[in-house]
Design a protein around this nucleic acid. Structure first.
Lengths: 140, 140
DNA sequence: TAATAAGTGCAACATTGTTGCATTTATATC
DNA sequence: GATATAAATGCAACAATGTTGCACTTATTA
């Protein structure tokens, strides 16, 4: 199952002019398999034993993947970044759902986010961060 | 100017059955004077020299004020909590604006947040966190 | 004024993320 | 295929934010 994503991951990385290292491919493939956004620590745990990376390398690789638009990272109230692969590169503007029971985070692509927010005069809109909190199906 | 808020702060604290200590009153009064949400560190800097509190006490006092609904705290992408006094106790559900230039955070009470978000089946809505990012009047 | 629970200060710790620098490696070129 | 080189990695140390345990102090009650 994971193998399928290794090839995809390598392609995505090469398309962005980056070196296709084992670390990058493994990390991106791991994120591609996930149906949810996961933390640095969770990524570490899911990497195969043949691919044990240094914490710092993982942080730097994630940063590179974000900068190149292959993944995106999500703020949360527990002060931990969560990462999710960008299946469709163009749609970064979407909302997220966080379960207050198990801390699971998923992307809510279905939520359209209009950009007409009434700000104080003199303020300029850039982007919006929207997190819906509640209980997931398992925690209900 | 600050004195006016000390009396208000003390009243608010006593109404909630808490001890009216110098620390609590000073911290709440400081937050009441602010037109924006400020961080733990900024609160520390704004406290009068006659009231120098331990970091831990400040954290615990803020926690108490949040639990008692006198202030609320706001997540941000820089992993730092920001605190704001609750002028109208009932209206916790509002959006925030964060300036990407100076990191200033203000409350956008004018934004109505409807609660009809289409979640996956089996999911239950609890609350919503909404942060609009952009440039404030000073940074434009 | 004294008793007591509530609040505070200090030290140590935990978690998450970052920086500097030497070493290793993927890729381009020969 | 061998080699040069920039890019990526690993290690150690550090930084920022927040938490825990426990002894001490203080606001409140009686």
């Amino acid at each position: 199952m994971l193998n399928k994503f290794y090839h995809t991951a390598e392609d995505m990385i090469r398309h962005h002019g980056g070196r296709a290292t084992a670390g990058r491919i493994g990390i991106l493939a791991t994120l591609l398999t996930e149906q949810q956004a996961i933390t640095h620590r969770e990524i570490e745990q899911r990497l195969p034993q043949s691919l044990q990376l240094d914490r710092v390398t993982l942080y730097r690789t994630l940063e590179w993947l974000v900068e190149n638009g292959l993944i995106h990272k999500i703020t949360s109230d527990d002060r931990v970044w969560r990462y999710n692969a960008n299946l469709e590169p163009q749609s970064h503007q979407h909302a997220h759902f966080k379960c207050t029971g198990c801390a699971q985070v998923i992307c809510l692509d279905s939520l359209p986010i209009e950009q007409n927010w009434p700000l104080p005069t003199g303020y300029r809109f850039q982007e919006i961060e929207l997190t819906v909190k509640g209980l997931c199906a398992n925690c209900c």
